[in-house]
Computed example of a mutant assay.
Amino acid sequence: MSASSAALFNARADATSLQPVPEQPGRLAWPLTPRPHVTRTFEPPATPFGPGHRGVDLETTAGQQVLAADKGIVVFAGQVAGQGVVALDHDGGLHTTYLPIAPTVAAGDQIYRGQPLGTAAPGHPGCPSAACLHWGARRGTEYIDPLALVGAPSRVRLKPWAEGP
């Protein structure tokens, strides 16, 4: 590689490392297995303190294991307004919450992707089933749709170039 090529490569690498990295499909795994039915979707609020649904509700059964969507640190595991809640901090400033849940983890625990956090509990308001897991995600103070962060990254498939007539 010539000196000018190396300089251009390093300049591009430096510029690329300063760019914010867009969310990639597959950043998070589903917190329930098998893949659950979504009973209520994400509805972002129009203003920071306005009404909305800051997460998604996933159909489950009471006692089903709730799994960590990605590796992280437990920042809260306990009761809020009579419901069990687990909150995780992940790399890149991502924060996820899971409720209602009977936690089996504690604040400060390091968690790996897919690790059980506790079991789903009944009693989520507005749930059309016996039990629903409310799963939320945010980056900083901005709530984001966790469903936009799940799934397998798509695979690129090259097809032969068809010659013209």
Rank of each mutant, 00 (worst) to 15 (best):
A148V: 06
P25D: 15
W30P: 03
A106G: 15
G123T: 13
A7P: 01
A106Q: 14
G82K: 09
K159A: 15
Q65H: 14
P128W: 00
A11W: 13
V86S: 01
P45E: 00
P36M: 05
P22I: 01
P25R: 15
G50L: 03
Q64H: 03
I101C: 12
Q19Y: 15
L28K: 00
G50H: 04
T104S: 13
P122N: 10
L67W: 05
P116M: 06
T16S: 15
L133K: 10
D14E: 08
H95Q: 06
V86H: 02
T60E: 14
I111E: 00
A152N: 10
T96I: 07
V150G: 02
T119D: 02
Q115N: 14
R27I: 05
P48L: 04
Q83Y: 05
P100Q: 06
E163K: 15
P31R: 01
L149V: 14
P165F: 12
S2E: 11
P160R: 10
H90R: 01
V86D: 01
P44G: 06
D89G: 14
Q115W: 13
E142M: 06
E23H: 13
P34Q: 14
F49C: 09
S17W: 08
L8E: 12
A68R: 02
E163W: 11
P146M: 10
V80P: 07
A131R: 02
D57Y: 05
G84Q: 06
A29Y: 02
